[in-house]
Nucleic acid binder design. Sequence first.
RNA 1: GGGCCUGUAGCUCAGUUGGUUAGAGCGCACGGCUGAUAACCGUGAGGUCACAAGUUCAAAUCUUGUCAGGCCCA
Length: 1098
Amino acid sequence: MYSSVESRPDFPGIEKDILRFWEENHIFERSVEQNKGGEPFTFYDGPPFATGLPHYGHIMVGVLKDAVQRYNTMLGKYLPRRFGWDCHGLPVEYETEKLLGISGKSAIEAYGIDKFNEACRSIVQKFTSEWRSTVRRSGRWVDFDNEYRTMDLDYMESIWWVVKQLWDKSLLYQGYYILPYCPRCSTVLSNHDVALGGYRDIHDPALTVRFPLTESALPVLPGSFRAVVGESQISFLAWTTTPWTLPANLGLALHPDFDYALVREESREPGEAPNYVILLQGKVAEIVGKDAEVLATAKGRELVNLEYRPLFDYFAQLGSEGAFRSHCADFVSAEDGCGIVHCASGFGEDDYKLLSAAGIPVVAPVDEECRYTEEVRDFAGRFVRDANKDVSKYLKDAGSVFRQGQILHSYPHCWRCESPLIYRAISSWFVKVESLREQLLRSNSEIYWVPEHLRDGRFGNWLANARDWSISRNRYWGNPIPIWLCEAGHYRCLSGRAELEELTGEKITDLHKHFIDHLEFDCVECASEGTERKMHRVSEVLDCWFESGAMPYAQNHYPFENKDWFEKNFPAHFINESLDQTRGWFYTLTVLSTALFGRPAFKSCVTSGMILAEDGRKMSKSLRNYTPPEEVMESFGADAMRIYLLSSAVVKGEPIRFSDAGVKNVLKSIILPLWNAYSFYVTYANADKVFAVSVPQNPQNPLDQWILSELETLIGKFRTAMEQLFLPQAVTPLFDFIDLLNNWYIRRSRRRFWKSGRDEDKCDAYATLRYVLDQLMRVCAPLIPFISEKIYRGLQTEEQLAHGANGVHCTDGADGAAPESVHLCSFPEVQQAMRRPELEAQMSLARRCVSLGRSLRARQQIRNRQPLAEARIVTRSETEKARLQELLGLIGEELNVKRVCIDENEEELVHYSAKANFRVLGKLLGKDMKLLASEVEKLDSAGIGKILGGESVTLTLNGQQHSTFELSAEHLDIRRREKEGFCVLNEGRLTLALQTAVNAELYREGLIRDIIRLVQNLRKEADLQVSRRIEILLGGSSREVEEALAAFGDELLSETQGDAWYWQQTATDLPEYGIGGEQGTESSVTEKVLLGIRCTSV
RNA sequence: GGGCCUGUAGCUCAGUUGGUUAGAGCGCACGGCUGAUAACCGUGAGGUCACAAGUUCAAAUCUUGUCAGGCCCA
């Protein structure tokens, strides 16, 4: 016996049973284990933050990863699947700060870095159990027990090794990064944080300041300026809304293409020497005054490298290094201020880039709380924003202020404490990515991208314009940068634990900051110079992106362990994450692998699109605009959700709007039909007691041959799509195949299963259907692992399952037994011998004929139950005629006609018209195409008939290139139109005509078909088993019904498992039914019959 | 502001190297069929292929521009 099949299956319930089955029998572990000697397939799982919950984005990539992994496992590849967690970084620190009720760096340091870090460690895996349960429920097989964590000692040690490699290759350097910084929280903010906090309007001072040129600058001025100014004082005018940055001013920037004006300032006191200023010509009226006279102009580029006197003397010594001069820069705007920008390299990104390119050192004289340091002695200890007034006053007293005002502008604020942010230079360690650009592009060219455009598009562009990568953070919970420094400025980068132990004599059990920051050792270089100095670790920790990018090495504790294995299996065959990782993980993986090994870290990458809510917006918990994944899986099942996602555009990097209705739809169009096919097989096999079904051996029935051929075609398409990692092209053929199986193979084969006895054809039918289902489940298994497991196992009898030996077919095991799980099977190979392309074409033609016939019946309002005498299929094509010949019986049965014949004389039934075949003729005729097209349209039906018959016709064109053209059939695109008065329908080369006349005999046969259906309905209502036998009681006054029974009574009995029928004209105890009529509807019935059934056997 | 992607039926999407009736599924309406199927089949309505210009005998398809949406970056 096969287990009986629930007719209304509870898919989520089934899935949970399957999950239990997998776990109890360790199917996942065994599926990996059994391939241990096989070719390895390397996969890298991108680590999610250990402090977040899984969302649809994770589920999407999880499902895709799972499908690819299951598929490759079924190909026999060895594919362990380690999960990983990203455990370090600011998100964890924020969580911990919240938990401890503290905020900011000084608070953390007061609390104690050791306690703080341990608190971070303890909350890191807060959400592990939620992850496990959601991932498990989605059907994704992944090894959680052997997961890697970026905070583990081995992982961290490998990261040190990676840093050391970069160090040895001189790819690391210390520089500055200008970042938004919150003075109150004493922390750097990411751009994401800035977006969170948003911009708001605040009032700031607006100060216009004179920067007087030194005497040495005068000879360098453009001649026109020199002529006006002579020996007088001349100043640049610059404008700022952050006066506090002026003490750190080290340069001025002008736009090379703008026009700058020389203007004479009004004397403040009579007799005073004249004073001149330079500013943007377009701003003269606004800033100096309407009446101000422009005495000379020059382009910005003519005014560069002019030395001016620093406003403050704090950094005056930098004048010798190039500070206090004018520069050209494109970022200068003509909108605000004077068109001259005051540059403080410590407090602005543009400023920093400009001045550091000119070789001027960075100056950022503020502490962690953004108070001036001692360097700015007049304001030391003052919070910079508060010092704006002091600075302004100081400059005013010094006579430097040209104008003072206020401005209301939008300005970024901290999302946590709402303080206005400050841009400031942060010292950071960088990887010299810019020097690697060419190698990065070379690595990228080796990667197979889905979608393809990412390679040269988004990712390629990003690499081509890559900037040096800041990898350090001034934080606590992270992997400490393994660089030690002595007071003499000597650096030493360590490569691992052993080296540190050797240098310090300490046993190292943990590499986190609070375990190693106190460790010091002697500086070797100093020693060689004869002095003795200690080295201390630099304070920074690594950005967590560095750690995830180094995951290929670190998860294997490379090179400390697994050296050979890693080197043989790098790069990974496959990774998959969503589009936002192009600049994230994909990038960091590629940078590190290229820097270390000169290769990409992965050979192929599928980039999924973003998952949006049904309303097209981002999924948002507060908006409640989506159903949580757990609930979707609870109502429709994980399989439905999986195949919905995998068949969508999201796997080619486009966004989708996730819709519950879409999931429900695939449940109806894929999962349920599969279930129905399975249920059909089991129902009849159980009723027929057909349990030992073999692989079909050369079946003779074309239906069997055909579906077996279609199966091979499916396997081929599926494999190709999976090799190309393009899932929708695997799913579409699957959809199509399921339709063919249900709505053609099973429908057309039903009677083969019903008939009594056990002839060869019936055995072939069982063998074929079981084989097809079994193979189909193996094909589906990677995509919909639950239902395919359920059906795969359901296709084995309870005895076979109990004894673990199937022994009859589709075996994988050496002992001839079918594996107990579909996921332990190998993926079907394409068996070319089974392919019958010609038969597939034949069947598709037959299906088109049937479709035409059905459409004709609908048009003529003749119900399908009414038998008709004849259908004529008309085609001139010899191939089509030959193809149809073998399937006439099948077509006749499906169309309920007594006879189907093939005819080639279509001219009786259709008119021809013709259009030029542009595809063929366009290349031949070029510009004369239009002429010919209009000539062709003039052809009449008879003329076209002749051409079809093989004659050719010469058309006169009088065209530019051709005066005549000899036309034959292949130059034409023939259209057919049905002639009036015939019951005929045409589609392309195929025409079908129905004989619609219904004679008495056909009419009576139709009546019997109506009665058969009524009886079947009664049986169904009475819930009778298929095999229960009945007697049929009939009555009424209809002569036609009586005659029909006399003629077709036997057919009635054989169709309904009837033993006998009885006719009584006055059977008043029976209900009455209307039958016959054109449409069989109540209003058009032509006969009435009294009808009842009773069982004869128990 | 820059890069990349997308715009085709009410909805979700196919659409080959340019070739003349632009397809499918869902939904809707009507009809049919039904002893595996809470299924299925047929018919119908519904399109300025975002817009504009260009290339071409011929453009949903190639080029340019515009508009709208998405993602990333600034």
